[in-house]
C-alpha cells in the first residue's frame, strides 16, 4: 500500500473534508430550525394542519434519502427548480433531517409536565414566552442525547451526496481512487475519516450532555426513552 496518493492530493482532500463539514453543519442547522418550527406548529395548530404535517413527516420517513435527493436534483428542474448539486444536497439534508428533529422536539415538548405551562399562563406569560422561556430550555436538556445521536446519523448520510456529485470527501477520495487506481488506500482513508468524525461528534455530545446535566437537570424527570432509534445508514 502506498499512502502517498493521499499526500499528493492533500489539497483536494482537504477541500472535500471542508465541504463534508459544511454540508453536515448546514444540514443540521436547517433541519433543527425547520424541525423546531414543525414541532411548534404540531403543538399549536388545528387538526387539519396537524394531519397534513403528520402525513408529510411519515412520507419523508418512509422514503430513502437518496431518492429524495434524486427527486430534488433531477426532478426539480421539471418544476422549474434548478439547483446546484451543493444546494440540492444542503436542502435535501435539511428536509430529511427536519422530520426526525421535529419528532425529537415533539417528544421533548410533551415530556414536560403540563402544570408548568399552566403556572406560566396563570402568571400572564404569552404562549410564545411559555414556549421559549419554560418549555424549550428544559426540553433541550432532555432531548440533548437524541439531538446528538441524530446529528451523528445525519453526518453518516453526507457521503450519499457524492452520488449527485457534491464535491465532498467521498466524492473527492473515490475520484482520486479511480484516477490513481489506489482504491484500497482511498477507501481506508474514507473509513478512518468518517469513523473519526462520528467519534468526535459523539464525544462532543457526551461532553455537552455532562455540562448540561450538571447545569440544569436537577429535577427534570430524565426520560432516556427519548433517545430515538439509530438509522442503519
Amino acid at each position: 500500500m502506498d499512502f502517498s496518493v493521499l499526500t499528493d492530493h492533500a489539497g483536494e482532500i482537504g477541500s472535500g473534508f471542508l465541504v463534508t463539514i459544511w454540508t453536515w453543519v448546514g444540514g443540521v442547522l436547517a433541519g433543527v430550525i425547520a424541525g423546531l418550527i414543525m414541532a411548534v406548529i404540531q403543538l399549536s395548530a388545528g387538526p387539519w394542519v396537524r394531519g397534513v404535517l403528520r402525513c408529510y413527516i411519515e412520507v419523508i420517513r418512509a422514503t430513502p434519502f437518496l431518492v429524495q435527493l434524486f427527486l430534488l436534483y433531477y426532478g426539480g428542474p421539471s418544476l422549474g427548480l434548478s439547483l446546484s448539486p451543493m444546494a440540492a444536497g444542503l436542502i435535501g439534508l435539511g428536509i430529511y433531517g427536519s422530520v426526525y428533529f421535529a419528532e425529537i422536539f415533539r417528544t421533548g415538548f410533551t415530556s414536560i409536565p403540563r402544570g408548568q405551562q399552566e403556572a406560566a399562563a396563570m402568571l400572564g406569560m404569552t404562549p410564545w414566552q411559555i414556549i421559549w422561556r419554560v418549555q424549550i430550555p428544559q426540553m433541550l436538556v432532555l432531548i440533548l442525547p437524541a439531538l446528538v445521536n441524530f446529528t451523528t446519523i445525519l453526518g453518516k448520510e453526507t457521503p450519499v451526496l457524492s452520488i449527485i456529485t457534491v464535491p465532498e470527501l467521498t466524492f473527492v477520495l473515490t475520484g482520486v481512487g479511480a484516477e490513481t487506481f489506489a482504491y484500497v488506500e482511498t477507501l481506508l482513508a474514507l473509513c478512518v475519516g468518517y469513523f473519526l468524525l462520528a467519534e468526535l461528534c459523539s464525544r462532543l455530545g457526551q461532553w455537552l450532555e455532562r455540562r448540561a446535566s450538571r447545569y440544569l437537570t436537577q429535577g427534570v424527570q430524565q426520560r432516556r426513552a427519548l433517545k430515538p432509534r439509530e438509522s442503519a445508514a
Partner: peptide, 26 residues
C-alpha cells in the same frame, strides 16, 4: 394568582429567577 398541588416551579430556573420571571416578562 394560582398555586398548584404539584408546585409547578420551573426546575431550570433558580428560586429567585422563578419569582422574577413573570415580573420581568409580563
Amino acid at each position: 394568582g394560582m398555586v398548584f398541588q404539584q408546585f409547578n416551579l420551573w426546575p431550570h430556573l433558580s428560586v429567585l429567577e422563578n419569582v422574577m420571571e413573570a415580573l420581568l416578562r409580563v
